[in-house]
Amino acid sequence: MNRMMKCTMMLVIAVLAVSAVFAEGQAEVAYPERDITCIIPFGQGGGTDVWARKVMGSMAKDLKVSITTTNVTGGSAGSIGISQVWNSPHDGYVLAATSETPLTIPVTTPITQTSKDWDYFIAGGSPGLLCVNSVTAAKLGIDTLDKLAAYGNKASLKIAGTTGGLWFALASLVSEKNYGNWPLTWVSYAGSGPAILATVGGIDADLVVASAGEVKDYVRAGQLIPIAHMSPDGYTFKTDAKSIDVPAITKVIPGIAKYLPLQQWLGFKVPSDTPADVKARLTSAFKVAMADPDMVKFASDQIAVIYNKSGVEAKTMAQKSESNLCWILFDLGKTTYSPAERGIAKP
């Protein structure tokens, strides 16, 4: 053991000494001078993942470096990936892909950074729809919002989703006592994909709140019927063959209007204390990427709205979503910390 320890120590010292000499005199050049990493806090194939890869692909062309996208998953609301970005140097070489969900990190984990500590680049998002499985709808006669609102035995209906995020908050606005007070049963899944599937199968769930992009093909196939737009305004769901007018949820539950709009948005963020010139360069690359025709086509395929927001505009949007989401979760008893102690204003 001694021999080995000696060997190791000698080698460490020798190599470090040699390389310390080399390390002298490296000048700083304009950003970006090397490859950028984008950390995606959610799994492959999800909305955040697909959008981040698309946006980063376009931005890399303008920045003329390659951007490596990596999924660092786990924790509540993507907290592991986000905290990894925060713990990296704030120099613009590590970006965090994000959706609205990581805004709940300060109330669900010991991490204290809120939207004040980040600068956002919001690319786009897809509208939230309340959908019903077509078999259930036909059987119970609840294929429109009015009929569902009038349906007597709501307690027998099950609504699928992921606990903790945006869709959970929206579904809770409908079902919880203090809000819409429809006594639906909440069934939780690991992601919106499995939740939608459980609704399509029709055994475990009858309703689901999800983004229009994700339910698009099931709507076209006639397996799901969109019955409400989770927003104060109506929405027209266009598919190649037909267009469906989807009424606003506030038509039957007007009381929740003050928590809306609470919409999906996808993009990326960097810590606020990143150097200003770096942020400016990222902003210009982001603008170029959003104007890319390929990006526009991608967004329309996903039935998404392009927001193209950065700077103050994006931060305001993030703060509004943060306040809504965190306070709704807190009211539902799904947080460890209160939004007040993290300095998040009440909506």
């Binding site: 080995m4 060997c7 190791t8 470090l16 390390a23 490296q26």
Partner: peptide, 27 residues
């Protein structure tokens, strides 16, 4: 210590791995 040397990508890792492998093989 070695983050600034960019002979190849991941040079610090190279050094660490070299030291580890060598000491394992010698031990």
């Amino acid at each position: 210590l070695l983050v600034r040397i960019r002979i190849i990508r991941g040079f610090p890792f190279f050094v660490a791995t070299f030291i580890y492998l060598l000491s394992m093989m010698l031990a």
